[in-house]
Amino acid sequence: MVNLDDLKKEALNLLKDEKVKYIIGYTEGSNGTSAAPAFIKNPEDTDKLVWNPGCFHNLTRFLRDEKKRKAREKHPDERPVGIVVKGCDSRAINVLLQEKYIKRDDVFILGVSCESTGVIDEKKVAKKLKGKKAQKIEWDTNRNLVVTTEDGTTKIPADEVLAERCVECPVHSPVVYDIFFGDKIKRTTDAQFKSVEKIENLSQKEKWDFWKKQFDKCIRCYACRSVCPMCYCDECVVDTISFAVTADTTAEEKAQRIKWIEKSPTPSETFIYHIIRAIHLAGRCIDCGECERVCPLDIPIRFLNKKLEKEAKSLFDYEVGFDPDQLSLVSSFKDEDPEDFIR
């Protein structure tokens, strides 16, 4: 089991010894099941850190903000940022290292193991609780979620409330870290792409109908993009600012700039947004599933990224986020890459 006191102690020492600027970790959220990201600067606040089944956020996303902040400062503090990462999140760090977005010295990684479980799917838990508010949630040693509500405690088997991504997760514990918490348990999954296969087995029309129904719900809040640690582009194709304006840019040039995707949530535009996002994450997505979790309309966005993860593996034998020194999927090739589709 991950010993929270160890985590707190290490965090305290890091801050006391001024080895890190601050620590990005988890703290108690305001709604019972979900934890919330915490940014801890003072040693005395390390007591607020938590580690529980509601720690689903991928905190590496905040390295984006840190990088931007640092770029604005005149005399930036060069110390690393302490960050709490799970197995999936640690692969995100590897990808960011691989893409040279961050340097290894920029982060001090407190790796926590998911051991035999993972994080919960809030919606699944809410269904089980039938409107009751959870006060505390934790895993017991027999893969049960122990939920404390005002009516006492109940046990729910992990497989009924685990997030789908955790069921399909191949790692479970950090692959890159400075300090490791918990046990390194070897776990294999035979269902890594089960959710993708469900859709693959549909007919072409069924596939289209499925996605049409899903994307029709999209309100283009871009939460999927905003929460993603890999969506770090300064300018995204969907933003209308993707156009350099200088002092001598004429009005005509401004009027003729390319608008790749309109703001309107019409089917064509929404489809293109989601397809492009998926393509852009090919060979980069580490399946932390945050895009799907944050979607207010429950669009299974993760299925898109997972599909490309599967293809990268089966077509090009490429796995994401294990080796920071490997070449990225789309900037490398092999002579024997498939080309049977080419005329």
């Binding site: 072409q204 596939k207 289209w208 996605w211 397809i275 490309l308 090009f316 789309v330 498939p338």
Partner: peptide, 16 residues
């Protein structure tokens, strides 16, 4: 070749 293989797979997956 790599990139387009991925686009093709994804298009098929979406039902295009």
């Amino acid at each position: 070749r790599r990139r387009i293989a991925l686009v093709k797979e994804l298009m098929e997956y979406i039902g295009l």
